[in-house]
Design a protein around this nucleic acid. Structure first.
Ligand SMILES: [Mn+2]
Ligand SMILES: [Mn+2]
Ligand SMILES: [Mn+2]
Ligand SMILES: [Mn+2]
Lengths: 222, 222
DNA sequence: AGATAAATTTAGATTAGCCTAAAAATATTT
DNA sequence: AAATATTTTTAGGCTAATCTAAATTTATCT
């Protein structure tokens, strides 16, 4: 099945909106995510339905078929591999890569993807800590939790973020709060749930709001 | 100026057809190169003419403006950098990369191109020996000549090819006749101008036709 | 020079992917 | 249960990039 750029973007967006939990999503949510009109979405989901990539029930939204899901995961895989390539190999910052990966993800060549995957060392996560599915479409287990859900004095490692706006990524960049970095929460202010955190081997503490902490993902560190 | 994929392909093809020598090229040659109808070409060159990327005189063909030439060179630069990336970094064979580079060349990001260029060591040639223009659009000097134009017993180095069909590249691949390899012509058969060549440090000689020799580019070797 | 051939343009369609406005269906509120 | 609001679909249109067939222009041949 050879899909157009537009079709691929719809599938990817629908997959992300379903979010492994919702049974079906509605026309308007797709329209909003892709910043196009609802009328256009109706046309396209009808087309994708004809191609058996999703199930569409008039007035009641869509969900992906197995084939549609497979395609969506493949596009996400490509996106994340390219993002990692841009950061790891070309020295881009993590806030700079999304737009470029939006283009690169549509390059059609299975061989290319597999070679890129190996070139990058068969990675499990992209620069933002998002999981990269393997060749078969299986996602690696994610055991990261929001920093805001942890307690003080536990050794943690930054795994990624669950919010991808460039401003936020730049904010973390400036403070050195990047994936792989080891940190510890020194104190949590009960009042506003803001926290003082400290990076392993550094004296200085960093104070971040609950809002920020809730967008940083961490896992237990050895 | 943000060009569509189609517009970029027209500019690249027109640049290649003009070949640094022709004053102007005609509608049919573009149609044939891009495998589309002449009527479609007329429409598109009118559009590119409106955008001041080429000069078009009805019934008398086109030639590129400075702006059009600059764009064309930029696309060729991207194409060749990606081809080199695929061969050097991802281990593709030189016959496998063209189609993928046809897609990658249209990814829009100047920063990406410059980072890729540096990642590859600011190269002067793509995997087929074709010159890669620098940031300003200047092509490195090419001093390679067809193998068929050389004499016997001169130390030569393979620089590239001037024919890019996969079958031909595979033929050279099988015989180890790749860019960088040092060779010497042992004997030229007057009758059909076929030649016996030998790779430096190897006993075995390889016999190739004039046709093949005319498609291999070589330069003097130290 | 006139006839014929070839190349080019014009005219009229088509498809994908988008739009707005109006109509229809569903959901929510009173 | 009506009325109202929201969501979705339908209808009709637009642009980019393509096509075929017909008309026109230029080039070549006798
Ligand atoms: Mn991204
Ligand atoms: Mn995309
Ligand atoms: Mn190529
Ligand atoms: Mn191309």
């Amino acid at each position: 099945m050879n899909l157009s750029l537009a079709e691929e973007n719809y599938l990817k967006s629908i997959f992300q909106l379903l979010d492994n939990s919702k049974e079906r999503i509605n026309t308007n949510s797709i329209a909003e995510k892709l910043q196009i009109s609802a009328a256009t979405v109706t046309d396209m989901i009808r087309k994708l339905s004809d191609k058996k990539l999703l199930n569409y029930q008039k007035y009641y939204g869509v969900h992906l078929t197995a084939a549609g899901k497979k395609m969506a995961i493949s596009i996400i895989r490509r996106h994340r591999l390219w993002e990692l390539f841009l950061v790891e190999k070309l020295g881009f910052k993590w806030g700079e890569v999304h737009e470029i990966a939006e283009q690169l993800e549509h390059v059609k060549s299975d061989l290319l993807v597999e070679r890129l995957y190996n070139f990058l060392g068969r990675p499990e996560c992209d620069p933002h800590g998002d999981p990269i599915p393997d060749e078969s479409g299986n996602f690696p287990l994610q055991r990261a939790i929001p920093l805001s859900d942890t307690k003080v004095n536990i050794r943690l490692q930054i795994a990624g973020v669950n919010y991808h706006e460039t401003d936020f990524l730049d904010y973390l960049d400036e403070r050195g709060l990047l994936p792989g970095k080891k940190i510890k929460v020194n104190e949590i202010t009960q009042f506003d749930r803001s926290m003082d955190i400290q990076m392993t081997g550094q004296k200085k503490t960093i104070h971040i709001s609950h809002e920020v902490a809730s967008k940083i993902l961490v896992e237990a560190s050895a």
